[in-house]
Amino acid sequence: MSENLSKDSIWNGGKRPFVSSYGKLMMWFFLISDALTFSGFLAAYGFMRFRNAEIWPVPEDVFTHFPFLQGEHPLLFVALMTFILIMSSVTMVLAVNAGNKNNKKGVVLWMALTIVGGITFLGSQAWEWGHFIHGDKGAIKLSSHEVVHVVDADHKLYSLYDLMNVDKYDGTDHQFLIEEVETAFNARPDLHIKRADRTIVPHQESEEFFENSQVVLGANLTHNEYGHQLFADFFYFITGFHGFHVFSGVVLLIIIFVNVLKGTYERRGHYEMVEKVGLYWHFVDLVWVFVFTFFYLV
């Protein structure tokens, strides 16, 4: 850059600050604000979790299922989702890399794979949400809003569907009355109650848990079978906000992809637009790395 710069041209953006283009700089500034927004959400999650540390659900006990697999597989599905997103980040770098060499075929191939990765991630998240909404084993919510679970002799969570002798996946929308559950529970002296603070109440002392209580199946913004209500609220809000970022990312990628196909950037002589959407896409991956740690691992 050897152009003569007068004061005017500096203040009018005549000089390239940081040897970077206007578009890339503005994308970075947007990403800073977005990063601070997400840290605000995660910090709020941490705040409420610290406040309710004794009764906060254990994430590894909540997210235990994998599509088409029986039994419990904690963390496996989110690990797969993380892998999908990292993989799509890799294909995105490869697309940018191809763009730097003005290799249109390469950009098309790698961007297409990135879009597929993004859509796969969204599908996985939809499955995860679906499972979270429908619930797993069911719970009892006391009038004090404490959520307690039925456990077996080994203190492992026991499904209310099994207790009521119904098939959870028979396609009908199950609802149990607290009285029905109480009757079934009383007939099973091997079952106990696990309180939110993880203490076990033996069968014979658990009568009080059925008075003025209700059965909760699944989770939404008013009740949550996994435990503290805020756990569900934060789950929907943070993964939802991230999922919306992924969705917008996919839309942006598709727009840029169509432009690549039309040869817009070939005529322009550079593929900087691919680089900019790439920055956004990597940021979405970056946020997921933190969501994964603080929502699922810790």
Partner: peptide, 23 residues
């Protein structure tokens, strides 16, 4: 320009909120 705001503000926010969160 990119890293400093994040490296300063995020730990600061976490420090305040998590300290207040401990009962």
């Amino acid at each position: 320009t990119i890293l400093l705001p994040c490296v300063i503000l995020i730990p600061y926010l976490l420090f305040i909120l998590l300290t207040e969160g401990v009962m």
